[in-house]
């Protein structure tokens, strides 16, 4: 389950932020997770408490906002919603869509005190 590694990276990012900005407690961590990305939100939630235990992120709430997939069609050049990575263009049927959103995984915001 690579989500453990990803959550370890999230905790490392939070710890690094604490060296830059003074805070003593993290109330919430808000992730932006691409719907076409490499991680399952449920798996991230599942391992968060165990990974965060004993770190600055312990006790924080993990909030995951899904970012929908979006692509650009190489034939009709329109921006279209993508349900999966190998979807065909819903407008013209062209099988090649270039993914332009929904692939990345980011720590967007921290609520701290």
């Amino acid at each position: 389950m690579h989500e453990v590694s990803l959550i370890e990276s999230v905790v490392a990012i939070v710890a690094e932020e604490r060296t830059r900005q003074a805070f003593s407690r993290v109330r919430a961590i808000r992730l932006h997770l691409g719907a076409l990305g490499h991680a399952e939100p449920e798996a991230l939630r599942f391992c968060f408490d165990a990974v965060a235990s004993g770190t600055i992120a312990e006790g924080a709430q993990l909030m995951i906002e899904m970012i929908p997939g979006e692509g650009r069609c190489s034939a009709c050049h329109q921006r279209v919603a993508m349900q999966d990575r190998f979807a065909a263009c819903p407008l013209c049927g062209n099988p090649q869509l270039l993914m332009i959103a929904g692939g990345d995984m980011r720590v967007a915001e921290l609520e701290v005190e």
Partner: peptide, 14 residues
């Protein structure tokens, strides 16, 4: 003193 910090950091950046 609770506040929100916008950091926008890629999880896989490291």
């Amino acid at each position: 003193q609770e506040r929100t910090i916008r950091i926008e950091r890629d999880i896989l950046a490291k």
